[in-house]
């Protein structure tokens, strides 16, 4: 078993049904197993319980789909990204796609470092018309504070959702379902959850799907929405 690290590979992957029901821990185990099946030369930690060294960018909540997840892998041998992709392709389970792989500097910042926001595309099915939904969005955005509660370490804690919203727009309507584009803060200072926004909009929704489209890093843009 190799413990020496010679390369760091950064992957971009997507999650769709039925894998969107997997938790972050489940995904870690799933990656570990598929990389072993693919016989990727992984670098392992030392000790009685050695495990491969995987780093994800941002935990994808259970039930969300995504096209922009990042995973850093530490390898014990150098591999061309194309070779690597060919090795793992036959081992990807339904619901997992890998769109990009690149070798990055061994000591490059971790994928979590400096993360700023996540862009979500949310489909909400509701009896409300597009105009009503649009009005609800405007009303929400004019508020200076949106107090919500969430579980944190076993207790309910109040927090303000408003500063976590960078932007929130209605981009389309198909029958009873409306597509909302949301850019929400994601990182050290807290992460905005799309379903909390939908709850705050009080749309009496009957169906809800949440898709993560993009993660962004770096300083906030000047003109905040």
């Amino acid at each position: 078993m190799q413990t020496l690290v010679v390369q760091r590979m950064r992957l971009t992957f997507g999650i769709s049904e039925p894998l969107h029901y997997a938790s972050v821990l489940d995904l870690g185990r799933l990656w570990e197993r598929l990389l072993r099946r693919a016989r990727v030369p992984l670098a392992y930690t030392q000790g009685y319980n050695p495990h491969p060294r995987l780093q994800f960018a941002a935990a994808l909540p259970v039930g969300y789909t995504s096209e922009c997840e990042l995973l850093d892998l530490l390898l014990a041998e150098e591999l061309e990204p194309q070779t690597f992709l060919a090795m793992i392709a036959p081992q990807l389970p339904p619901g997992l796609t890998v769109t990009h792989a690149e070798a990055i500097a061994l000591h490059a910042p971790s994928p979590q470092a400096g993360m700023r926001a996540a862009h979500y595309r949310v489909s909400v099915c509701t009896p409300r018309s597009a105009n009503q939904v649009s009005a609800a969005l405007d009303a929400l955005l004019t508020r200076t504070q949106i107090m919500r509660e969430r579980h944190k370490k076993g207790e309910m804690r109040a927090y303000d959702l408003r500063p976590l919203i960078d932007s929130l727009t209605l981009s389309g309507t198909h029958g009873a379902c409306h597509t909302l584009e949301m850019v929400l803060r994601c990182g050290q200072e807290g992460s905005g959850r799309p379903e909390q926004i939908v709850d705050a909009l009080s749309l009496d929704h009957t169906d809800l799907t949440i898709h993560r489209c993009r993660l962004t890093w770096g300083d906030p843009p000047e003109d905040k929405a």
Binding site: R33, P93, G95
Partner: peptide, 10 residues
């Protein structure tokens, strides 16, 4: 734990 009820495992 909805993962109990979906299948699709390797």
């Amino acid at each position: 734990k909805p993962g109990r009820y979906v299948g699709g495992e390797w």
